[in-house]
């Protein structure tokens, strides 16, 4: 797609980007704290990543290389349309290779490949408030954050164990940041939770409809909440990838026919592709 110069660089005007950058800086200064910001209407529906797009627009530079992940994949609707949006409005280079990207916007996944200090990972967040479904009053949850009253978060985990025998929360698993704020890591699978902590890249979280930005600076301590007798476990499907044979990556289950046939493949398409190019082969590879 060609660069459309009718727009300001990366769609948003400079004052808006400045406002968002201030919120980002505040978020980085207070890791895990939800900073309110004046979220703008974006040319896409709420729930499609309006928060992530605004954060990306604020951090993108003309020399950046941009990658978009949707559930680990580079080729799904959300990923393709956001990628072309910034191609058109910012004219930045885009890529599907994790290691080539300097800004990565993601929905529901953290790349398998370890990120570096030169990269920024931007998350799309539907509901930034981890206490939302336990305490509907926003005034009350804000007070609970400021007074560090997080007993309620464990009530949710307690309910999980009492109903299912184990902590059944498998995505958007609550974490505690730097021993202070409880944070919703956006709906990433809990398999990705251990990658949040001590990550060399900057992690930014944007919630457009809810008008909140929060952030994790590099090498931040992030602990998943649990009970002493029911410790946190980063779970995944117990199979190797059918295409590349990887045993350490998060897998999607794909139904292949109506005879019960199924295929487990890496959800991170770039990771899978790299492995296959390097000669790894899974049992279902053609």
């Amino acid at each position: 797609m060609t660069h459309d110069t009718e727009y300001n660089f990366a769609y948003l005007d400079e004052q808006t980007k400045r406002m968002i950058r201030r919120a980002i800086l505040k978020g980085l200064a207070v890791p895990g704290y939800q900073v309110p910001f004046a979220s703008r209407e974006m040319p896409m529906p709420y729930g499609w990543g309006t928060g992530g797009v605004q954060v990306s627009a604020a951090v993108l530079m003309p020399q950046d290389t941009f990658k978009v992940i949707d559930q680990g994949a580079d080729d799904t609707t959300n990923a393709v349309s956001i990628r072309s949006f910034f191609q058109r409005t910012a004219g930045v280079r885009t890529t599907t290779a994790t290691s080539d990207a300097s800004v990565i916007q993601t929905r529901h996944r953290i790349p398998e490949e370890r990120l570096t200090e030169d990269q920024i990972l931007v998350y799309q967040v539907p509901i930034p408030e981890p206490l939302r479904f336990l305490e509907p009053r926003e005034s009350e949850t804000r007070k609970m954050h400021s007074l560090e009253e997080y007993g309620l978060m464990h009530v949710k985990l307690y309910e999980d164990i009492s109903r299912h025998g184990h902590i059944a929360t498998s995505y958007a698993y609550p974490v505690k940041v730097e021993e202070r704020y409880v944070m919703d890591p956006s709906p990433i699978p809990k398999f990705d939770n251990p990658k949040l902590g001590n990550m060399p890249a900057i992690q930014l979280f944007g919630a457009g409809r809810e008008q909140r930005i929060y952030a994790l600076p590099p090498y931040t301590s992030v602990i998943s909440l649990d009970f002493e007798d029911h410790p946190f476990e980063a779970s995944k499907a117990d199979h190797p990838c059918g295409l590349c044979g990887a045993i350490d990556s998060y897998l999607d289950e794909v139904i292949t026919d109506d005879q019960g046939g199924r295929l487990f493949v890496c959800s991170d398409t770039d990771y899978c592709e790299n492995r296959r190019n390097a000669g790894h082969k899974g049992k279902d590879a053609a």
Binding site: G151, V155, Y158, I161, F227, E228, D229
Partner: peptide, 11 residues
């Protein structure tokens, strides 16, 4: 809830 609010973490 009150037990967890005062820091009990053993299910």
């Amino acid at each position: 809830e009150r037990l967890m609010a005062v820091g009990e973490r053993n299910y």
